[in-house]
Design a protein around this nucleic acid. Structure first.
Lengths: 237, 237
DNA sequence: AAATGTAATATGTCGTACTTATTTATTTAT
DNA sequence: ATAAATAAATAAGTACGACATATTACATTT
């Protein structure tokens, strides 16, 4: 009989079990955001464990944003933010460069695909804001101003998508971009888009014009070209 | 004097402060995954607080996946998974429908934009796997089989992108799609792609052919059309 | 009736003691 | 001397009891 058949024995800690039990309890209870939870002492007694252990399990849910505790009032179910925890992880600067590049690439992918959604909600679009950013950009003199306008323009595109989750995603990633931007710059001075070779360049103004009078397909292609320089960089993985 | 001038007093709990302090400590220490941390008692003594409070702060980092504790050995910095916590939040079914729809839309956006990356890494692509899935799909008889093949095909596209983070994102979202899929179906029976009106239909085989012989621009457009039915549904927000 | 004071409440924090799994050191056996 | 068995040390996990503190709701005063 081969030893591989033997599954390693589950050695979950007490708190792990409590956590699972609570998770089950929450799911079964069909709780809605705002609903109150039993107090710690009640939970501890009901599950036959110490308040210490219960508190640690609850702390996990609190960290995830699933529950909120109003001090000395009790606990309630809360509506978690999907990206909140991811943001905190990015903040630790513990991710390896490969992952950061992949995240950066994910942003490029989203921006190319985002055109469709923007066109879908075009009627709500406020093009004048994009116009203003472009004007500011055209008057910019320093590299730093240019970068700032670049970020502003792309942020505005996310806003036009009307998808708050995608907007949230972008905002969360801004700090990461700083990191990858500077890395790209170090390698190739790729940032200034005054590419001198024969590849065509798509400016922010081009994008705006297409947004006004073009179609999604054009927009996607232009955005792809606009972001070309980054795609090139990343493809060398 | 107006009352608005008075800023609300910061009332952070002890643990909150410890958490911030530790975060600072970790960042300044420039820790790498695998590095060992001081033991709980040392931290407690150094910060002049009880072990209980330290443990709760550490528990937060543990929940986020920033540190790992090997029982009775000590704690080490670990390489966190960006999407792990998000996955757990999705699992709670606590997100409102709007957010779920937005996440679903994000997936559509990504799939449209993903073509570029797939073409970028085309040389590595294993088209035979897509072929097999399509064949299985064409032989499928039940709705369930069709859905399964659909998911498989799209999953494979993510794999071809070679971007592990994006792949991870997709895997995390699979359960959400189930939910939105069934919701869409309830409303309109939109799922079976035998649309009878005059909009053109793009099959998985079409996509594969374009992947083989076409260009990224074609692929994006076809993918957009392929996913048309979902875009339609969601645009009615 | 409005403002102030007071008691009840549930979480936050603390200290201490004990348990348990792992590592390291020591002893024992061949 | 090497390997196996045993014992000690270690640091996290768990428990209990106590008190601190902020919020709520009730009671009191003017």
């Amino acid at each position: 009989m081969s030893l591989e058949k033997l599954r390693p024995v589950e050695h979950l800690s007490q708190v792990d079990k409590i956590e699972m039990s609570l998770q089950e309890y929450l799911r079964m209870g069909n709780f809605q955001p705002g609903d109150a939870l039993p107090k710690e002492t009640e939970l501890a007694e009901a599950m036959g464990v110490s308040r210490t252990a219960i508190r640690e399990a609850l702390s996990r849910f609190r960290t995830l944003g699933i529950i909120e505790t109003r001090k000395n009032r009790g606990m309630i179910i809360s509506q978690p933010d999907v990206f909140n925890n991811m943001e905190r992880i990015l903040d630790t600067q513990l991710l390896d460069d490969e992952t950061l590049n992949e995240i950066f690439e994910m942003r490029l992918v989203i921006e190319v695909g985002l055109g469709d959604v923007i066109f879908l909600r075009k009627h709500k679009a406020d093009f004048s804001k994009l116009e203003k950013i472009i004007e500011k950009e055209e008057k910019a003199t320093t590299q730093m101003e240019l970068v700032k306008c670049d970020i502003e323009f792309h942020s505005m595109l996310y806003n036009l998508s009307g998808n708050r989750t995608i907007m949230r995603f972008q905002k969360m990633l801004l700090p990461v971009f700083d990191h990858v931007y500077t890395k790209l710059k170090e390698n190739t001075d790729a940032y200034p888009k005054k590419v001198s070779d024969n590849t065509k360049v798509v400016t922010h103004r081009d994008l705006l014009n297409t947004l006004k009078d073009g179609d999604p397909e054009q927009f996607r292609s232009q955005m792809r070209t606009h972001l070309m320089v980054y795609f090139k960089q990343l493809s060398t993985d």
